[in-house]
Design a protein around this nucleic acid. Structure first.
Lengths: 356, 356
DNA sequence: TTGAAAGCGGTACCAG
DNA sequence: CTGGTACCGCTTTCAA
């Protein structure tokens, strides 16, 4: 068939076939082979196309993407930065981002910033070298970080060079941003709970320097205020923004006496779930003795018992939207992602009897 | 300072700075700039190094990784293929893989095969063009897939060209593979449950064409056999290998009558959790009226109520090990990843009273 | 220690 | 429609 019979034994470690090899094997010129294989406008005789493809298959040719990138001046890569894939919040977003990227024919490069602004900056720097078509960053920006300015510089340089960036939930940076309506969602949650008759609340939250935590807490308090209610400062507990933080918050709450509390609102679902476990271990039945609510609606929110009342964020869609915004030609500015209150069994329909 | 003052307005869309620009700005030659910035052996006068670095910073220079890759003949990328990131099993693995890759200074490219062997093949093909240093594939291979041979071809070509591959849990392919001890883990689980006094079991499993499901079921039956027990075929239920599949399995079980069943073993945790929810909705208390056990020990296994008895796989470590194996110089063959039975509250310490 | 220049694998323009 | 060839951005001999 095709004349390829020189070379070392079949399974030796061998330099991958180049376009040159393919062209020679097919008996056509370099340029023709290129056109037949990856050319945009096909002006190659059918017979030659066939020969080239046959040769390529025979040789196991795979176009060198880096070489293409350099020759074409653009890559087929998009980059994603998350704080931690092994967290349902981020993994759902990552799934969405990846879907949208693959739909656009892009390979996605993922980096994990491990909740460290320093690492995040370093990652963006190194990612920039890849010349991805877009960079999507999902993470909980920490207020007043020193690296903020440097991150902005880096992203600005990237964008100036033609790159596109989209941020998830880091409002205050000058780039297209998808904002979750943390404040509004938490506010509506508070109103819904007040409507159910709950009167006494605890808030288990992270540091106010974590914007997300701050906004959710503020929104919740706002909602309560709207309903003519407040939270006793004793019941406002700051802990790490994690499952174990939520558990610690619940323990702190127990120590301060929890008889009065109708509902403990934890600013994210994993914290709420951690808290629920602690309450249960202390002999309380969540949803009966004490209500618990979270935020995010991660997958397992429906699998815990009782199912968790929360504020739903369409995480996967959010990820998709982020990549689409990044890839779009025109700037999107701030895109608000709506949230939705989901009342489940972890907050009883009525507060415990004997209350006002 | 450094003489850069031609060019369009500052924030226009501008071609990213090249090494050439940097060299000119620093007043040194192209080669010197290269050496100062990314050269391995530094034989550049300190003063020039400083000038070059200053110019690079000034210009926001970022080395073009594709160009480096092509010039050096090797990339700084590793690739990961998973079935679905938005699944705690895979996201934990992905976290581990990424950790190990970043530790090795590699950027990771992640693709999602969506549990489709076709897509998986297509992904590997396209990934090969990236010339990653290693490809790690985590997915549940489906027996007798037509694409199997093509996948082997593709990976073989990749490896022949100097690439390294590691597979997670797809025993029968001729590449380094990390195998989870599914059979052994399930067997030991069965023995442990038998030891607790349980006698009647149900198995909720996926299609036998899913290797993982098959092995776990077989192992479980083996363990029971060792304990002189069997599973009534009526209680062996085939459903999709997903959470909803588990739920469906539980419903089927309820329809067949569940009074006799001491423990329902679902071949993975998400299935078990789905089943547990169905049992509860049917008025049964998991862990009291019926035992439930799973496999994997995903993060939420401890947060469901009752906490789930399962077989623990060190998922994150598994991911790390996979990348390390892939990156290592010498072939590892088959690496067995041990599993560990974890008895929790979802399987009561003793079977219900009134049983033998 | 430095500069010039030959690649690396492809793309795309320009004549034939 | 096809072949020749000038790049793309960077690394790395090879001389100077």
């Amino acid at each position: 068939m095709i004349g390829v019979n020189e070379g070392p034994p079949a399974n030796a470690r061998r330099r991958p076939a180049t376009l040159h090899d393919v062209a020679r094997a097919a008996g056509v010129s370099y340029a023709t082979a290129s056109r037949a294989l990856n050319g945009s406008d096909r002006t190659v005789r059918a017979e030659n196309v066939a020969r080239v493809h046959a040769a390529a298959a025979q040789l196991g040719y795979s176009p060198h993407l880096s070489a293409q990138a350099i020759a074409r001046g653009s890559t087929s890569t998009a980059a994603l930065v998350v704080s931690d894939v092994d967290d349902p919040y981020f993994s759902s977003i990552a799934a969405g981002v990846t879907e949208a990227a693959e739909a656009a024919g892009l390979i996605v490069t993922m980096a994990i910033a491990d909740r460290s602004p320093d690492l995040e900056l370093q990652i963006v720097r190194s990612l920039r070298g890849q010349r991805p078509r877009a960079i999507v960053i999902a993470g909980s920006r920490i207020a007043g970080t020193e690296t903020r300015a440097e991150l902005i510089d880096e992203l600005t340089a990237y964008r100036t060079a033609g790159g596109r960036v989209a941020l998830i939930s880091q409002h205050d940076l000058p780039f297209d941003t998808l904002c979750i309506d943390n404040h509004g969602g938490a506010r509506r949650l508070a109103l819904a709970l007040a409507e159910q008759g709950h009167r006494t609340f605890a808030v288990i939250h992270g540091s106010d320097s974590i914007r997300t935590s701050h906004d959710r807490r503020a929104g919740f308090l706002d909602g309560l205020r709207q309903a003519g209610l407040t939270v006793d400062p004793r019941y406002s507990i700051e802990v790490p923004f994690t499952r174990d933080g939520g558990a610690a918050g619940a323990r702190a709450l127990l120590a301060r006496g929890v008889e009065e509390v109708d509902v403990a609102f934890a600013v994210n679902d994993t914290m709420a779930i951690g808290a629920m476990t602690v309450f249960r271990d202390a002999g309380l039945t969540p949803g009966a003795d004490i209500g618990v609510a979270g935020f995010d609606d991660i997958g397992s929110a429906v699998d815990v018992v009782p199912a968790l009342t929360t504020v739903r964020i369409p995480l996967r869609e959010l990820g998709q939207a982020a990549m689409r915004v990044a890839l779009a030609d025109d700037a999107a500015g701030i895109v608000q992602i709506p949230t939705e209150v989901v009342l489940r069994d972890s907050t009883p329909l009525r507060p415990r009897p004997g209350r006002s």
